[in-house]
C-alpha cells in the first residue's frame, strides 16, 4: 500500500484538529474497511488518525421525562457489543438482528458503529482500480451502469452512480429514526437525522454522506419506540451467512389494537442510502395488519423502482421481502 503517517489520538478534540490539519487523512476505527480499501489502492489517505483510544465506546440511557428510554450508542462501541448490549437487545431487537446479520463474528468484534456507518460500497468496479468509477475517481464514468449490476440499485440512482450502500446496521437505524451526533474541526457539534445522513449519488457519487470533511461521529442516538415486540430484520442473500444483502428489509409495527398506528420500513441493497419505504409506510398507517394490506403496501413502494439490466429480480424480491418482513414483525419474529 501507499506510505502513510500513523497518528494516535486520545480525545475527540485532538482527532478533529488532526483531521482539520490534513484533508487527506482518514480516521482509523476497527480498520475492517479502510485497511482493505488501502490494500486495494482504492483509498489513499496520507495519514491514518487512530481514534480507538477515544472514550466513545459507551452505550447508555439518555433522555429525561417523556424521552426517558432513549439511548445513545458510542461511535467506537464494537458492533458485537452493541448488538448484545441489554439496552439494545431489550428495546431495539431490530438493531441487534440487523447487526448480527452482517459480516462474521470476527469482523463484528473489530467493527465499530461509526466505521459501520461510513463503510463504503461493495460495487466491484469501485473496488477494482483498473475500472472506471465515478465514486472512486470522479469523471471516469460508472463501470456498473452498463456493466455487471446484479447487486446494484433500483431506487434513487443516477447515471453517475448506481451503487448500493452495504450496511445492515444502518438499515435498522433508518427504520428506528436514529440521529447521528458529530463533532467538527472547531469542536462544534451537530445532530444529523438519519434520513439526512447518507445521500443519493446525484452528480457527486464520491460523497456517500453529509459529513463535512474532518467531522467525527461521536454517538448515535435512538429514540424509544413502541414496536420492540413487533419488528424484524430480513436479509436476503446469495448464501446463508457472510454475504452482503441482495436486498434487506427492516420492519417495525406500532399497533393500536388491530390496526397499524405506525409502520416503519427501511430497505437495504436497493439504493445509495438506506431506503425508507415511505409509500408503504403511508399506505399501512391506520390499516389492519393483514397480508393483503402488506402486499398492497409493497406494491405501492416498488412501483417507482427502476431496475438495471441484471437486477430486475429485485423488484419482485423487494415486494416479497416487504410482505415477509412485516408478517414476521407481526408475529414477533416467529415464522
Amino acid at each position: 500500500m501507499r506510505p502513510f503517517v500513523y497518528t494516535r489520538v486520545d480525545d475527540a478534540a485532538k482527532a478533529v484538529s488532526s483531521a482539520a490539519a490534513n484533508t487527506q487523512a482518514s480516521f482509523l476505527a476497527g480498520g475492517t474497511n479502510i485497511v482493505d480499501l488501502m490494500k486495494e489502492d482504492v483509498a489513499r489517505p496520507t495519514e491514518l488518525i487512530d481514534i480507538n483510544r477515544l472514550k466513545l465506546a459507551q452505550i447508555r440511557l439518555i433522555g429525561e421525562g417523556a424521552n426517558r428510554g432513549n439511548i445513545a450508542i458510542g461511535a467506537l462501541a464494537k458492533n458485537t457489543e452493541t448488538a448484545n448490549h441489554p439496552l439494545v437487545r431489550q428495546n431495539y431487537p431490530l438493531l441487534t438482528q440487523a447487526i448480527l446479520a452482517g459480516a462474521s463474528g470476527q469482523i463484528r468484534n473489530m467493527a465499530t458503529n461509526g466505521g459501520n456507518l461510513n463503510q463504503r460500497t461493495r460495487c466491484t468496479y469501485f473496488y477494482d482500480v483498473a475500472m472506471p468509477c465515478n465514486k472512486r475517481e470522479p469523471g471516469t464514468g460508472c463501470g456498473a451502469l452498463e456493466g455487471i449490476n446484479r447487486m446494484h440499485a433500483i431506487f434513487g440512482w443516477s447515471e453517475k452512480c448506481v451503487a448500493v450502500y452495504p450496511s445492515d446496521m444502518a438499515i435498522a437505524l433508518a427504520a428506528l429514526d436514529a440521529t447521528v451526533k458529530v463533532q467538527g474541526a472547531n469542536g462544534a457539534t451537530r445532530s444529523i437525522p438519519f434520513a439526512e445522513y447518507h445521500r443519493l449519488p446525484g452528480d457527486n457519487p464520491e460523497k456517500d454522506n453529509t459529513l463535512q470533511p474532518g467531522e467525527l461521529i461521536t454517538e448515535i442516538e435512538l429514540p424509544k419506540n413502541n414496536f420492540a415486540g413487533k419488528s424484524y430484520y430480513l436479509k436476503i442473500r446469495d448464501r446463508a451467512s457472510y454475504a452482503f444483502a441482495l436486498l434487506s428489509v427492516a420492519a417495525g409495527l406500532e399497533m393500536n389494537g388491530a390496526t397499524i398506528k405506525q409502520a416503519r420500513i427501511a430497505m437495504g441493497g436497493v439504493a445509495h442510502k438506506p431506503w425508507r419505504a415511505l409509500e408503504a409506510e403511508k399506505f399501512l398507517s391506520g390499516k389492519a395488519a393483514t397480508e393483503a394490506n402488506f402486499a398492497a403496501a409493497a406494491e405501492a413502494e416498488m412501483k417507482s423502482a427502476k431496475p438495471l439490466e441484471h437486477n430486475k429480480f429485485k423488484v419482485e424480491l423487494g415486494k416479497r421481502a416487504i410482505v415477509r418482513a412485516l408478517s414476521m414483525a407481526m408475529s414477533g419474529g416467529k415464522a
Partner: peptide, 24 residues
Amino acid sequence: LIDPRYGNFATRSFADYHIPSNLD
C-alpha cells in the same frame, strides 16, 4: 463473471465469489 467490455473478472474477491458458508 466477466465484464465483456473489458474482459476482466468483475467477481474478484470472496465478497463476490461465494463459496458455501457453514450455515449453508
